[in-house]
């Protein structure tokens, strides 16, 4: 079968989920030409997530076409080395996404930050328990970035997505009612926490009396009407209760399709191609030079690029890396 080699661009990104959209946004804003390849379809709130059908629990909990179509492609898995890995034939609790916006279309909006020590897990454990504490064959590592380095970007993310919550550590000052164990934040959340249900207030009182420090979970579902720094406005949550596994019918829940894509799709140096399944990283002399993929019509394409970004989530990224290793011999 013939392969069409396209005109080279600055950046090609695999996946249009949270990571792919953010990378596309940052690089397109810096003036680079960006092509984003998404295996799923374009969805929009006004049709796909319209009332009343969006409240169909059978559809969205079990059968929805916003999840990966396993008839085309799936993963195999096993729980330990003594078992044989078998294909995931039917969607269970693990629901990979397959649409513009990726899995973040049906996430719950739970928008926590890592704790400072999460970034330096190996160092912190060695510091506390000694270097011999971690077994030799354990591949635990530090992330390579620290809390202080990443904090401004958490801040930026919360501004763009409109996260609501209550700070528990503002520039080192502990604040009762927030998460007092979190790392020092440079700013308060851009939005307040959600209203507390009656059950929440009962639970909060009970655990506070036991000496714990309850705090509202930060969420990227809006607690009030909000316009983000990119000028994208979204409406406040209606407390309908259909978040995880559902698309938000009013767009209160932040997802790439309602925070980043509205801005990105207006940029002339950004191109989104849907229905494109990336097969291989094209590389030479140890350097990635582009992506080979099958487009929506089934045609084989190559998109050359100076920068190749794998943003198709852990399993797919690892698979694309493995193909590189195999083909490099």
């Amino acid at each position: 079968m013939s392969t069409t080699k396209l005109k080279s661009v600055d950046v090609v990104v695999v996946g249009s989920g949270v990571v792919g959209s953010i990378m596309s946004m940052e690089l397109a804003s810096a003036g680079l030409s960006v092509v984003c390849l998404e295996r799923g379809k374009q969805f929009d709130i006004d049709t796909d997530f319209q009332k009343p059908n969006v409240y169909d629990e059978l559809k969205f909990d079990r059968h929805s076409d916003i999840f990966q179509n396993l008839a085309r492609d799936t993963i195999t898995f096993r729980n330990n080395n003594s078992q044989t890995a078998l294909p995931m034939r039917e969607m269970g609790a693990f629901k990979p996404g397959e649409m513009v916006g990726g899995t973040a279309a049906h996430w719950g909006g739970n928008a926590r930050r890592f704790l400072p020590h999460d970034f330096e897990m190996r160092s912190r454990i060695e510091e506390r328990y000694g270097a011999s504490f971690i077994p030799e064959d354990c591949n635990l590592q530090d992330w390579g970035v620290t809390w202080d380095e990443i904090e401004p970007y958490y801040d930026q993310f919360e501004e763009i997505f409109g996260v609501g919550g209550k700070a528990g550590n503002l520039q080192g000052k502990k604040i009762d009612g927030g998460n007092v164990f979190e790392g020092p934040r440079s700013h308060e959340y851009p939005n307040p926490p959600h209203k507390k249900t009656y059950v929440t207030t009962v639970f909060e009182k009970a655990v506070r009396e036991l000496g714990y420090h309850p705090y509202p979970v930060p969420t990227a579902t809006l607690s009030q009407n909000y316009t983000n720094p990119d000028g994208v406005s979204r409406a406040a949550c209606t407390y309908c209760g259909y978040c995880t596994r559902y698309g938000c019918m009013i767009g209160a829940k932040a997802q790439p399709t309602n925070v980043l894509m509205p801005v990105l799709l207006k940029r002339k140096n950004f191109t989104l191609r849907t229905g494109c399944s990336v097969r291989r990283v094209v590389h030479r002399n140890g350097k990635a030079e582009g992506l080979s993929y099958q487009d929506a019509s089934g045609a084989e394409m190559i998109q050359p690029a100076s920068i190749v970004i794998l943003a198709s989530w852990t399993l797919n990224n690892a698979r694309l890396h493995a193909f590189v290793s195999v083909s490099a011999g």
Partner: peptide
């Protein structure tokens, strides 16, 4: 929308 190719083998309950 389910995967229908091989390999075919009886799995563990976790493998569905």
């Amino acid at each position: 929308r389910q995967y229908r190719g091989g390999p075919w083998q009886e799995g563990t309950p976790q493998q569905g």
